[in-house]
Amino acid sequence: MDYGFEDLGSLSGGVKAFVHGALEVPFHWHDHLEILMVVRGSVRMIIDGQECLMGSDDLVIINAHSAHNSVSLDPGTVLCGVHIDVAHAERQGLVDFSKRYLQCKSFLTAKHFCDDVVAPMRGLIARLILSSGNVEDGLLRTCLAGLLCCHIYRHVPYVPRREAPSVNGDGRERVMRIMERMRAERDGRLSLEYFAEMEGLSIPHLSRLFRRHVGICFRDYAQNIRLDRAVSQLVESGQSIVDIALDEGFSSGSLFYAKFRERFGCTPAEYRRRRAEPQGEAGSAHPYRHLLMELAERDDGLSRQLMRLPESRELVAVCALHASGMG
């Protein structure tokens, strides 16, 4: 997983689906729209500096350039979602799609919104994931992706894009930059003092600014970076756990154990063992196939949506093109 800005490149068909189990996803942002949903378990996320607790069936749209992370709260958690290239969708005819700051957090909305707007998104995403990996399903994926974009375009409320970041006030770019540098910092200088001096800010000012935009304090974020690095080392290297802890600047093994357990819900040894077991990766829906099938087959209003689609201006335009032989 990339830290900070994540460059996903261009997405084939404008959409890329993923599914994964309990996982630490550190703070990052990207220029795609992301839809994330909890299939099972629960996660704590921070999106645009605001903590979101999500349970099974919850779904959130993360707008392009919104910093976010996610922490699975129990080991059985399964998350899935899609990245959408809004520029691609815009080129397909969804006018000004990229100018929208979409507002969709299922846990804030009324039941009818969950039934009519969120549930079809869940079904479409599940179908997208289920059709991933097969070359011959390419056209199907394109159709599903198009439907998903049309659905969002038509039903998800939004505010004009420019207003959104200003809600958090100035300094967002600066905090983003600091986060990026913190991620890049390799020699352990993850101190508030260091970054304050580098940015020419007072320590309390940076502390407040950071907390406002990221949702957690600088010290915790720095510690998380160290823990996240430790995690990758656990999986990628054969180093001893104590060595990894010392490498990442923890003063003692016991402190590392305590913080690790606090963040990941298990000991480093357990984590290493679990990660060594085979599990699902992006693009391969296999281990969660039954869960996704359940979602895809649930009566989510998608069929009703499809029945109503001839009313949709977008689809009418597409059909007209086909009819005129130009499609």
């Binding site: 903590e51 979101c52 957090k105 804030l108 009324a110 009818h112």
Partner: peptide, 29 residues
């Protein structure tokens, strides 16, 4: 949306629920 304060739905009815689909669901824009 910024602070994650959810919405709630209310409707009339002293002796039955008057759930107006138009008025409650129709307008999300």
């Amino acid at each position: 949306y910024r602070l994650n304060i959810p919405e709630i739905v209310m409707t009339d009815g002293t002796y039955g629920v008057r759930y107006s689909t138009d008025q409650i669901e129709g307008l999300t824009d």
